[in-house]
Nucleic acid binder design. Sequence first.
DNA 1: CGGAGAACTCAACAAGCGTAGAATTCAGCA
DNA 2: TGCTGAATTCTACGCTTGTTGAGTTCTCCG
Lengths: 219, 219
Amino acid sequence: MSPPADAMRRRTGRRSGESTTREAILEAARARFADHGYEGATIRGIAADAGVDPALVHHFYGTKERLFVAAMRFPIVPSEVLGSALEAGRDRLGETIVRTVLGLWGQPDALEQTIGLLRAAVTNERAAEMLRGFVKGAILSTVAAFADEEDAEYRASLVATQILGLGLVRFVLRIEPVASASDEDLVASIAPTVQRYLTGDLQPHRREPSRRPARTPRG
Amino acid sequence: MSPPADAMRRRTGRRSGESTTREAILEAARARFADHGYEGATIRGIAADAGVDPALVHHFYGTKERLFVAAMRFPIVPSEVLGSALEAGRDRLGETIVRTVLGLWGQPDALEQTIGLLRAAVTNERAAEMLRGFVKGAILSTVAAFADEEDAEYRASLVATQILGLGLVRFVLRIEPVASASDEDLVASIAPTVQRYLTGDLQPHRREPSRRPARTPRG
DNA sequence: CGGAGAACTCAACAAGCGTAGAATTCAGCA
DNA sequence: TGCTGAATTCTACGCTTGTTGAGTTCTCCG
């Protein structure tokens, strides 16, 4: 039994030809983080999807956390994408942003990155930090050009409220009919909201901004 | 060494007096599910918070999943809460709903239930099912009284987009300044959005509702 | 052609998980 | 008083996880 024939034995050691496994691992990681979140995704599962031994993942990326950072940082540079949205002019800002975001989510890589970041950020503080930076970099820089300095951050986080809520309901929770609605219908429905958050009257009772504590998540 | 003195030994068996541990376990479970999500919360951790052996949790609730269901189903009956919101009249519907929801989230138990459901639903399909039912029961029943039958579900899921997005940004991701804003400021800013989703003109291009596939999560 | 280092796998570790079964102590009813 | 059953803990099984170290095979440069 167990003849160590050349064709049958599992091959250890380096493969011939140029290697693309590094990128394959990243793609598998993006998919699994998007589907299962940070804690739910396993290095063993990612390695299996990439057709590779789990130890190789460590060889390339060190720890699970560094793999996550590498996987989430790849394809999108949101400020560039949204930056071009500014050219449409102040009055069509909401429409352009919603359309741009939905278009971005039409690309599998970008969708996986966004969902992965969102799924992970909900239970992992480190990922939440990344998402906060993402929101701040992408939205705030766009808003700052149109809102007065004092309101800019408040307006930006209101926009985040609607955009992240849209992604959550449409792609993560998949609540119908929003989950299956066309991009154009969603643009028509949601763009006015974003437009008002950016340039409209928010009627804030600007007395004392009464602070109230929020929940503290995992360390 | 190790004298089995009466005062020193760990006590097994039933305690004297009437027991409140059953409820203590539920409270600990709510808090842990809210902080860590479904997979992240551990029965051992919940038991420790309740000052109890992990096996007792199983004795009472069977499996982790049934514990989750029990913990998430307790305090809120959302249709009752929102039902009273209807009395304010059609024109103030958005304001009343946003104010009611924010008031609800001022109660620790209700906040924990909502956050727990949200955190769990993002990575757990069973919890997502519960949250969908929650949204459908709470929001749709409210909307149906004011929107024509054809649009009601679409309007309800748009409202879910904004309300869940608000909860996500304010309590889970804690993106500033929304995380620390006063309830009243948020009502002033967000109520018009909800009002428009409920009773306003959504300008939907009602051609063919072009279906596009959404991501498939974990089984 | 030879050596260095990169790519890759194997096997194993310590830890943590959900869960199960048996043992012990108490409450309440006959 | 005695018995049944509920409340409670102990111990342990089997599994999965992230991570590590050693060993093997290839590529590439001198």
